[in-house]
Design a protein around this nucleic acid. Structure first.
Length: 434
DNA sequence: TCTGGGGTCCTAGGACCC
DNA sequence: TCTGGGGTCCTAGGACCC
């Protein structure tokens, strides 16, 4: 069943027919770093690292293959990466640019088939199952996609299989510019020797649970009793067991709407005072509010995350009386929420603010700011400015300035100061929050 | 100087309603 | 006065992904 593809380019080569579902996973190679090398010709062939600062708890987002030679990996602390590869070229990244290149590539994929499920900025599943009208072999489609992507100046690796699980794992087996094909019928043999962790959905915790029961490979997982796996992992256990047996039949489906919008900030130095914490919360809330408005979303579920210096996490979530996209309205509530999980003096390493619950149509902006009708007593969103229309105008004017001159151009005073207080270190060193 | 930032989904318990 | 079960919403925490 397995076919050797090494003579693919030679005339007379014929692919074994593909009479089964065909799923492709297209994964852009070292994507962020590749875009940087595309945009900076002088960086090509050199170790390039996209990531945070080593002295600010930063981690590596993406390392070019030249940097990986030194052992640098994604998610590695930047301080470690710096030690492994001191001469690497560092950048914090240019995300608008990555989005632009990604959109161009996703356009190519959607030109190949409408059945595209974008998983992330640099990954997508395609369903290219041969049909009566289009008999083209999946491997030929994959080859053409690789050529077309390379015309844009970056490369991709592709896995071809009869399911998402197999395609995803295959795409990872040969990088960069790899093409790994798992022909129909060979799924179980392909999966059996692989460590359980290889499979999407099995992380550190599940790996450990399985290891404790002597299960280390997908073959062992496939042979284990389904009841035992379900007992261990609940609903998810059934899915895991089926997938390990090569039986994944999840369809490729275009992803739907965004469900939440959030921003987090890790601080170079832990925050301890109420002034600093509130100033940081206001800054983060402003980012969230601005992104909500840009997307035309207003949410009812406000959440707050606090990470302490020992990495423990507390979170608080509240339902708003009505959907909001306005940080001036929900920031005071965040100040109250943070008091529930934090006492001034306890060092705070990270703060995060999120908004979800977009079920209700986001377009009804007028009623959102109409507070002349008495708000219910338990309403969580309090007006900050008496005249709601004025406040809306202020927010829109501010967004417009930020659009023209960038995020840092303008901030409401208390984002940087903490309410009514000018002595916090936050006001002296706003760069800490960048 | 050991661990980011953006997400999704699941679980379990409690409140509340019928 | 004591009692059950289902459904739904909400909350906190955590696993997992890229």
């Amino acid at each position: 069943m397995q076919q050797d593809l090494t003579s693919y380019e030679e005339p007379g080569f014929t692919l074994a027919p593909w009479e089964a579902p065909a799923i492709l996973l297209v994964d852009l190679d070292a994507f962020f770093a590749s875009v940087e090398q595309l945009d900076h010709p002088g960086w090509r062939g050199k170790p390039v690292i996209v990531g945070g600062d080593a002295d600010k708890h930063g981690v590596v987002s993406t390392a070019s293959y030249e940097a990986r030679v030194f052992g640098v990996r994604s998610a590695m602390p930047s301080s470690t990466a710096k030690r492994l590869c001191p001469d690497a070229i560092w950048t914090h990244g240019h995300f608008d640019r990555y989005r632009e290149v990604s959109n161009a590539i996703m356009g190519i994929l959607r030109d190949e088939t409408p059945h595209v499920q974008q998983v992330s900025i640099d990954e997508a599943f395609l369903d290219v199952t041969p049909t009566a009208v289009n008999r083209e072999h999946p491997v030929d489609v994959a080859r053409r996609i690789q050529r077309r992507v390379e015309e844009l100046g970056v490369t991709c690796s592709i896995g071809v299989g009869t399911s998402k699980t197999v395609a995803k794992i295959a795409s990872d087996m040969d990088k960069p510019r790899g093409l790994t094909v798992v022909f129909p019928g060979s799924e179980r043999d392909f999966l059996a020797p692989l460590p359980v962790r290889t499979m999407s959905g099995i992380g550190a915790a599940a790996e450990e649970k399985l290891r404790a029961r002597g299960i280390r490979t997908l073959g062992q997982l496939a042979c284990a009793g389904e009841d035992e796996i379900v007992r261990l992992f609940g609903k998810n256990g059934r899915v895991m067991h089926v997938r390990a047996n090569g039986g994944d039949d999840a369809p490729v489906e275009a992803d739907d709407a965004v469900k939440s919008v959030s921003n987090e900030m890790t601080f170079a130095r832990d925050l301890e005072t109420r002034e600093d914490v509130e100033a940081a919360l206001a800054t983060i809330a402003a980012k969230v509010g601005r992104r909500l408005r840009r997307k035309g979303l207003a949410g009812r579920t406000l959440s707050l995350r606090v990470r302490f210096s020992d990495r423990s996490v507390r979170s608080v979530q509240r339902q708003l009386a009505r959907p909001s996209d306005d940080e001036l309205a929900f920031t005071p509530l965040l100040f109250r929420m943070v008091e529930e999980v934090w006492r001034p003096g306890t060092p705070v390493r990270l703060l995060g603010v999120g908004m979800g619950g977009f079920d209700e149509p986001a377009v009804v902006q007028e009623s959102l700011f109409d507070v002349t009708e008495a708000a219910p007593a338990e309403a969580d969103v309090e007006p900050v400015v008496a005249d709601e229309g004025k406040r809306r105008g202020l927010i829109e004017a501010t967004d417009a300035v930020k659009d023209r001159f960038g995020e840092a151009a303008l901030r409401f005073g208390r984002e940087l100061r903490g309410e009514g207080n000018t002595t916090g270190s936050a006001s002296k060193n706003p760069a800490d929050y960048k």
